[in-house]
Structures are given as C-alpha cells and as structure tokens.
Design a protein around this nucleic acid. Structure first.
Lengths: 197, 197
DNA sequence: CTAGTTCCGGACCGATCGGTCAAATACAAG
DNA sequence: CTTGTATTTGACCGATCGGTCCGGAACTAG
C-alpha cells in the first residue's frame, strides 16, 4: 500500500446506490456516477471494475441491508409477532412525503429492468425474496404460537402470500397508486392471515 | 396520399412491442427497432415520432390489450364469477415453458423503469391498475351474489387485495421464483377472499 | 404521359456512451 | 532523501447513441 485512497468505499457505494436507485442501471452513465461519487473515471474503474460490477456491488449491499432492516423490524423483542407483522404492513402502506415522489425499492426496479437478461441479478433477487419469505414465515409461526393466527393455517403458504402482497404493494407504489389502495391490500392480506384489525 | 406506405402500422407496433418488452426502454436502441420492424430510421421517425413517442404508443396498446384480455377472461358468460377468479389466479401462477425464461408483464417492467421519471408512464399505469381493480371488484361482487364469497366482505377492499397479489406474483415471476411460491400466494389470496379450494 | 405528393433508405450529424491509459502525485519503506 | 508502489486525474479512444435530412423511388391525380 503506497498511496492511500482518498475516498471511503462505503460512502462511494452509498452515493452510487442513490444514483442507480434514482435512474436505473441503463439510464445511469459513468458521468453520473463520477458526479455523484466525486471520483474520477479511473478510480471508479480501478476500485470497483466496470459499470456492471459496480452495480452488482450496489445491489448486493442494498439487498443485504434490506434483509437486515426487515429482520430488525420483525425480530424486535418488544411486542408480539402479530403486532410486528401489522406494523410492517402499515409502514409499507404509508407513502412517504406526499410532495416527494415515492421511490420504490431498488431491488424491485432492478429485477424488472435486468433480471430477464442478467442471471446474477435474478439470482440475487430470488435469494432476497426467499430470505424475506423465511422471515415472514417465522413471524407467522410466532403469531400462531401466541394464538393470534389460527394454528391450522399453513405458515409457509401464508408467508408466501404476504410476500406477494408486499411486492405487489411495491409495484403499486411505483405507479403512484392512491394510499387507500395500498391500505386495502395490506388490511385484507392480514385478514386472510387471520389477523383482523 | 401519394406514395402508399409499405408497412402495416399494427404489425410494426407489434414488433416494437416485442423489442421493448424484451429489453426495456433505455436498453432498446433505434437500430434494434429498425431491425425488428424492418423500417428505416426515417420511416420510423416519420410515422411515430421519436423513440419515446413510439414507446408510449406501444405501452398504450399493451395496456389496452391487457385490460381487454382480462375483461374477456373475467366476463366469460360460462361458469361462475368464483370459478373465473380461480382460473385467473391459476393462469397467473403458471410459469410458461420452463425452458424459455418467463417474461413478466411489459407494464410492470415499464412502470419500474420509467414511472418515477416519466409522468405519462405513471399515469397510464395507474389507469390500467384502476381498470383491473374495477374488473376484479365486479367479479368479487358477482361471486358474493352467487354466495361463493361471504357477503360481509368489502368488495372494493378485496379487489385491491387481489390486485396487489397479482402484481406481486408478477414481480416474483420476474425474479424467476419457484412456481410453488406463486401457487401458495394465489391459493392464500383466494382463501382470504373466501374462496377456498 | 406529366406533375405533384408522399414515403423510403441510408448517409450523416454532434453528443455521449463505457472503457483505457499514461503522466502526475502521494504516500510507505529503507 | 531516494526508491517503489498505489492512486488520481483527465485526456483520449472507437463505438454507438438518438435524431436529421435529402435524393430517389413509388404512387395518385389530371
């Protein structure tokens, strides 16, 4: 190690994430990334490889963080599994600041744009979805143990259903659908799980 | 009208749809479109305007066709509303030829790629989703009238829930998730609607 | 047939794309 | 201070981008 790097790799990845998130992969140019990260073309290339490799790094970090965030949200020691599930769907149904346009999950956008042509993206998406399904299933089972969800429901099937609703809510958010639609979907999904409001 | 056109507008739009569908908007070049349609750059430009205008024409046609297809599928005079709903979710849960990679709905891909930056796309997506929700609601009400769905369910809420599940299944399909996951989601969604298998 | 109009094909445009490279620079090691 | 190595910077590359334009072809009207 001779000349030390002037940048923080994590910070650069955060900036790059922001850029890809806003514009998508194809619509983000190297110039955009240079502007966002403050790095020169050469540095960017030397540190992360080409545009696609950088994107995969970004996507990987995003998926890891998203799964960790969900795990933290669902595994809070406080409250019951049922309450945590309800809270999760509540948050997902809440469109943020009405002035700022809602920005859907990077994973959803990336999957739609690239999964069909890039196996790496598809694989990462499947991994993440499977992880999320597992987290949901654990909470469903927890809620069943607590008596909040009928014991005769198939936990795995219920989790897959909740996963589909979550991804569907994401898709509806992308289009800017009214929040009431999202709320309906969330409420009905929880009802089908046996969690009435 | 002096020199007649050598091409069929509908046929060209079909080819263009195929191309955009496969690659997305940004990743489709004018050369790709020329190759797919057989038209020269000038003809393409003269007939449809620039790339974005052509894309919007394509998306518009796709949404119209998709809504019409769904309407036809859900309004068949044969069978009951409940059976038609079940059949719809069955089809959506069925990934086609396992060798050919599943190709998700063009609307879903376009919304993910462009809705955040292109208001026209977002509007068209909202319109289409709203239309689909309306069709679903009508069937839910039909099934309620026939006694296949409990009358105490809110039809609108149930329809929004089914819409979210459909879009979620689309998102999971994009990633190539296992068909069993889709089936779980579909089954559970119908169960919540009061339609047991 | 001629005149007028529309359409086709592709050469051409400047801009921008992703990616490379060499010279300048900044540090650690000795 | 000298040497060696790693990093930075930005000029530069060929390819390709979306879009324009024009000469010739194909047709209708008269």
């Amino acid at each position: 190690m001779a000349r030390p790097r002037k940048f923080d790799e994590q910070q650069v990845l955060r900036s790059a994430t922001e850029t890809f998130w806003t514009s998508g992969f194809a619509a983000t140019s190297l110039d955009d990334l240079m502007r966002a990260t403050g790095l020169g073309k050469g540095s960017l290339y030397g540190a992360f490889g080409d545009k696609q490799a950088l994107f995969l790094r970004v996507l990987d970090g995003y998926c890891t963080d998203a799964a960790a965030g969900l795990r933290a949200r669902l595994s809070g020691p406080e409250s019951s599994s049922a309450e945590r599930l309800r809270a999760l769907f509540d948050v997902m149904a809440t469109v943020g600041d009405p002035s700022a346009p809602p920005r859907a999950c990077l994973l959803a956008k990336s999957t739609a744009e690239l999964a069909a042509t890039n196996p790496d993206v598809a694989t990462r998406a499947r991994q993440t979805f499977t992880t999320i399904a597992g987290l949901l299933q654990a909470e469903v089972e927890g809620a069943q143990a607590a008596g909040d969800i009928p014991a005769d429901r198939d936990a795995r099937r219920t989790a897959h259903h909740l996963l589909a609703v979550l991804r569907g809510m994401e898709a509806l958010t992308e289009a800017g659908m009214d929040e009431s639609v999202l709320r309906d979907a969330a409420d009905a999904a929880l009802a089908v799980a046996g969690l009435s409001r």
